[in-house]
Computed example of a mutant assay.
Amino acid sequence: MDFDFSDDQEQLRDAVRKYVDKGYTFDRRRAAEKAGGFDAAAYAELAELGLTGLYVPEDDGGMGMGPIEGMVVMEELGRGLVMEPLAQSLIAGAVLAGYADAATRTAWLPGVASGEKLVTLAYQERGSRYALDAIAGKAHQAPGGYVLNATKSIVAAGDKADAYIVSAKVNSVMGLFLVERESAGVSTRGYNTQGGGRAAEVAFKNAPATLITTQGQAALEHAVDIGIAATCAEAVGVMDKTLDITAEYMNTRKQFGVAISSFQALRHRMADMKMQLELARSMSFYASLKLNAPAPERRAAMARAKYQLGTSMRFIGQQAVQLHGGIGVTDEYIVSHYFRKLTELELSFGDTLHHLGEVSARMQDTAGVFA
């Protein structure tokens, strides 16, 4: 199998890396975090690069690209700790293109592709513990469409989004619905996330909604799997940069008159971090390559990948802080922000223990040493 990236993919990586290095500095990020965790100008810049339309078909105004291009982009955004929720645009583009009717596609996909419309996934509820079918939200038909009642938690950029893709039950079947933020009955409470970004609690009270699909379980699983693959790729970028920062620090920090990078015990710890990074990178590749596989195979692959990524994120984040010493947890120093981001990503779309359970639940009778 050929794992080399194409010329177009390498050019895409180069373009995103140049933008992050020059246009998304650490000072700009810190200012955006203090201002609320969402920079509309930065999101518009991502749209100018065409990234918000990555998964939107060309006929609908997007770039019509696939999972590998998404992985390449998310890795580079992870290296720069870009807070704007591009993964949500990937999810929205794929869900609306794959499940919505023609009228809904025409109304929303061009705006998603151009960055004029931010559509985010609202599916988590208190007490659901990452279970996708544990929802209390309900929708029912009304004159002119549907009305929806639900409360969703940790909605990415929830008080900044233009609309939401919301999971709710209709006639005992899960459906996905599109609800505009400015609609009657929608209220938001925004806050900063641990990683510095923006999220919100969003309440829908008899809010008018457009039905996307009644195949809600399958569509939501697909949406979450896109989110998992994007999170894995972003985490690889965060870990890669964390390793670079730690190596640079060890080459400059001196004790007993020599750089601490010369201490064998610390070099071994750096080697262990590099090994965890490469394990994570290979599983991120695996997740992206499996995004278009049949649902059972895709779901199993995402659980395996997220489990390994969670393990690697925890190890690399903790080791980086320990190798830096006290400076590693100060807000003024960059590595603490990488550590916080890794902590947030480990919890996104299911934490490590959740996905270990998912891996276990999907094991076949032939699994194990006695197969």
Rank of each mutant, 00 (worst) to 15 (best):
M283D: 13
D159Y: 01
P110C: 06
H268I: 10
F26E: 14
G98E: 06
P57M: 04
L309W: 06
G144C: 09
T120P: 15
A94Y: 07
F38A: 10
E180K: 13
F370I: 01
A150H: 06
A136V: 09
A44D: 12
G196N: 08
V20F: 10
L90I: 11
S167R: 00
M250S: 06
E69D: 15
M1A: 05
S284G: 14
T213D: 01
G127Q: 04
L178Q: 03
S282C: 02
A203D: 06
V166F: 09
P296Y: 05
Y333P: 00
L51W: 11
F315W: 10
F204P: 01
G326Q: 00
S284I: 03
R281W: 02
T311A: 12
E344P: 00
T311S: 12
R253Q: 11
V202R: 01
A122N: 14
I260M: 06
H268E: 12
E76I: 02
L46R: 05
R298N: 15
Q322S: 09
F204R: 03
A113F: 10
S288L: 11
Y191R: 10
A31R: 07
E248F: 06
A367L: 00
D21R: 13
K274T: 07
D331P: 00
G325E: 08
G50Q: 05
I260N: 01
L220F: 02
D4E: 14
L289K: 12
R28N: 02
L176P: 13
P57Q: 14
R298Q: 10
Q215N: 09
T25R: 08
V321D: 10
N292G: 06
T330K: 12
S172E: 14
T193N: 11
G115N: 14
G325V: 07
H354E: 08
A295V: 13
D27A: 13
Y249P: 01
Q264I: 13
I334Y: 08
T106F: 03
Y333H: 08
I334G: 05
D331H: 04
A47F: 00
A320P: 02
E358Q: 14
F256V: 11
V369L: 08
G257Q: 08
N292M: 10
A97P: 15
G137Q: 09
L220I: 04
A295D: 10
A265L: 07
G127P: 11
R126G: 10
G137A: 07
H337P: 05
Q308G: 02
Q217S: 12
G195C: 11
H337N: 15
L81G: 08
A301F: 07
R126P: 00
A35P: 05
E84D: 13
A87V: 04
I334C: 01
